[in-house]
Amino acid sequence: MRTQGNSQPHLQRAALRHTCRNRIRRRTRLPVCTAQLTKELWLTIMLCHGGAVRAVRFNADGNYLLSCGSDKSLKLWGVSRGTLLKTYSGHGYEVLDADGSYDNSQLCSCSSDKSVILWDVASGQVIRKLRGHAGKVNCVQFNEEATVILSGSIDGTVRCWDTRSRRFEPIQVLDEAKDGISSVKVVQHELLTGSVDGRVRRYDLRMGQLHVDFINSPITCVCFSQDGQCTLSSSLDSVVRLLDKSTGEMLGEYTGHKMKSYKLDCCLSSKDTHVLSCSEDGHVYCWDLVEGSLSLKLPVGKAVVQSLSFHPTETCLLTSMEGCVQVWAAEPEETQDEVTMAT
């Protein structure tokens, strides 16, 4: 399974495509997904970054993880052993977000120093340093083919940088947001941005349309579901909402956690069965996507859980609190069960 995922993650995802939207409508549950996150996740590895970890991200196949530190460095770790593989330093201020390309050859990261950096993974060299944002850059994301880097900044713009050409100007600047951009996600031809002005904007490149969903509270994080039919958005009113992508209707609302003032992450599990969110009370909350009930309250520590990332295929979770990254995995036999069931 892992080898499959290595080669073509998005195909893998497509194969696992179960529309969670339909499941919600029908109130049915897939048998495969029931037992996934109900049991506790087990802490397998703790990694110490140094400075506060601002974001932690899996790479495309989930074998490596990236941690963005406030110590201006970006670190690449192996997930299975927890070994530090490389440190990428070149930012002038704390690194806020990072993403890996689909072929694991490049990384991009953004920082409070208003710049976006494209890294070469192997050599650790800066391929390109992209400047243009007027404020600190909150989020960064490659597109599917790593031809474009999208970065959202506190200046209210999303800039689309071309990785193929030597131009230092962005291809396009999306300045529709009235306030800072807190989160950007790309799936295929769609960009999803969450802004502090309380709106989730979805740019459909193929249709040439911009859909704006009003959520009356500053957005901290947005996600696409794996099937691409839904959007997940967490906002500062301590609610995570699952919206239908095409109509904007709310399919689910997940509450209980505390997200009042900090920019914290939320995400969906690898098979769209659960919704996970960071919380300011030191827990990771995990809800059943269909039921909306809290299925797991994972205690991480005392401080704020700032970032989390779910493994693209397996039941594996990354969290970051202060200077540490935690890797959580399901019990080994359970994972094996899953693998067999999934395949």
Binding site: C160, I171, Q172, E176, Y203, D204, L205, G208, Q209, L210, H211, V212, D213, F214, I215, R241, L243, D244, T247, G248, E249, M250
Partner: peptide
């Protein structure tokens, strides 16, 4: 009541 009331659609021209 998310949906039509909260959603707006614009024509947007990508580069």
């Amino acid at each position: 009541m998310f949906g039509k009331l909260t959603r707006e659609m614009f024509e947007w021209h990508p580069d």
